[in-house]
């Protein structure tokens, strides 16, 4: 499992490969916060290659979204498969995040 950080113009895109769970959530948090400290303000987390997310993974996304908003930025989520969308819907986190069907759609207007 790994997190691939790339830049699309002024947007930082983090692709989650494998799973986002209690054992690796701090790695994602650290990578995004490093970019935030470096002045980046626009973020997309791409779940196209993600198998599953647990509550700790959901929690770190909530935390990051809050920290990014506090700095005047925005975090969007992209490419959630049906299973992952189910988790966001069950927890009502779909009301908290802007969720796009694809990375390209998430980048639009960001």
């Amino acid at each position: 499992m790994a997190f691939q950080v790339t830049k699309e113009n002024d947007v930082t895109v983090v692709a989650v490969e494998g799973q986002l769970i209690v054992g690796n959530r701090q790695e994602l948090k650290q990578k995004v916060l490093e970019e935030l400290e470096n002045g980046e303000r626009k973020f997309v987390v791409d779940f196209d290659q993600t198998g599953y997310i647990d509550s700790s993974g959901l929690g770190v996304l909530v935390s990051l979204s809050k920290k990014i908003r506090e700095q005047g930025g925005e975090l969007r989520l992209a490419s959630l498969n049906e299973d992952l969308r189910t988790l966001f819907e069950l927890t009502k986190l779909d009301t908290l995040f802007k969720i796009s069907d694809s990375r390209a759609e998430a980048l639009k207007g960001l």
Binding site: S55, S56, G59, V60, V62, T91
Partner: peptide
Amino acid sequence: PTTPANVVKTGGRGIFLMRSL
């Protein structure tokens, strides 16, 4: 964890997910 006050919190979803799934 799904109430408006709790949905913005970073934790407290584990047992809810177990019971839901």
